[in-house]
């Protein structure tokens, strides 16, 4: 039992890492990025390419992939999201939905349907573990993932609250017109926020690819898990995202303990329970407030269906 709890919490660390970018983009830019999972998978392919073709270790590969992701975030905001945002609140969501399809299919075309993994390129890290007292083993990679989640979310929180650039991003999120009046270049602030979000997506892609296998259509399930973690934690709160990830990880681990098929169901049940509790008890439908619409739900349903 204790083992299940510990493994569940550590799994939650992974979910927190993948939810981080989604939650950040939502909380500071009010954009629900349905291409989140696909972009993470794209980063994973980037690392895999560097490792398999050029023999660059995935950790060194991050030094190349993360700046590339930042650039992609900047361009995405400047040339896609910013423009589509002028068409109303719904358009950016549709745009990212379309982007997800484009990315998935481009990857399919480039890399085929084979599943890949970074595990062969990180030596023993993918299966090494530490023994805790009581005969419980924790994977080194899982612990590293949890540490990364805490560092990432804590770092972002610190950046947003203590640094001038972070304040500028928050101010722009709240009121871009007034942000301009106090001297903030709102377009730049948003592009910077998108770049930061994409860096976290790149990190998420690295962990996705190190701990498991991925293929061109792995983005959907990753988006689903990220979304569940973010919503459980109260979309838009960074520390809440960590809690949300842990709750999701625990629910899945306990679900698997109850029934062999219970892994995903456990997570979905908790997600739905939290969602309905929010909608009906608290009365401030966080989802409704940000104009979340049928498209999002359809995408999630599709993701649920395509979850192995």
């Amino acid at each position: 039992m204790i083992d299940t709890l510990i493994q569940g919490i550590l799994l939650g660390g992974y979910y927190a890492v993948i939810a981080c970018g989604l939650s950040f983009m939502f909380s500071v830019m009010r954009i629900i990025n349905l291409a989140h999972g696909s972009l993470a998978v794209a980063a994973a392919y980037g690392l895999w390419l560097l490792a398999s073709r050029f023999g660059i270790s995935p950790f060194a590969g991050l030094l190349i992939v993360l700046p590339a992701m930042a650039a992609i975030g900047w361009l995405l905001q400047r040339y896609l999201l910013e423009r589509s945002a002028r068409g109303g609140a719904l358009l950016p969501i549709l745009t990212t939905f379309g982007l997800a399809i484009v990315i998935d299919n481009l990857m399919f075309e480039q890399f085929g349907a084979d599943t890949r993994s970074l595990a062969p390129f990180i030596g023993s890290l993918s299966y090494d573990s530490w023994e805790l007292p009581g005969g419980i083993y924790v994977g080194k990679l899982a612990v590293m993932t949890m540490a990364t989640a805490i560092a990432l979310l804590g770092g972002l929180q610190l950046f947003l609250s203590r640094f001038a650039l972070g304040r500028a991003i928050r101010a722009t999120a709240e009121d871009p017109d007034t942000a301009g009046l106090v001297g903030i270049d709102a377009r730049k602030a948003n592009a910077l926020a998108a770049a930061i979000a994409m860096v976290t997506v790149g990190i998420a892609g690295a962990f996705l690819a190190m701990r498991a296998t991925f293929d061109p259509y792995s983005g959907g399930p990753q988006l689903l898990f990220a979304f569940e973690a973010a919503v459980i934690g109260g979309a838009g709160s960074l520390w809440g995202t960590l809690i949300g990830g842990i709750v999701l990880g625990l629910a899945q681990s306990l679900g698997a303990k109850v029934h062999p098929q219970g892994f995903l169901i456990g997570g979905h049940v908790v997600f739905l329970a939290v969602l309905f509790a929010r909608l009906f008890l608290v009365g401030t439908p966080i989802i409704g407030r940000i104009g979340f619409t049928k498209t999002g739900f359809a995408k999630i349903r599709a993701a649920i269906r395509s979850t192995p």
Binding site: A168, R170, A171, E174, D175, A179, V182, G183, I184
Partner: peptide, 18 residues
């Protein structure tokens, strides 16, 4: 038109952006 989610000090610091 203050940034209502931010503190007085943070609003003042934003004024220094330029």
């Amino acid at each position: 038109r203050l940034f209502s989610q931010m503190t007085v000090e943070e609003n003042l610091l934003l004024g220094k952006t330029s």
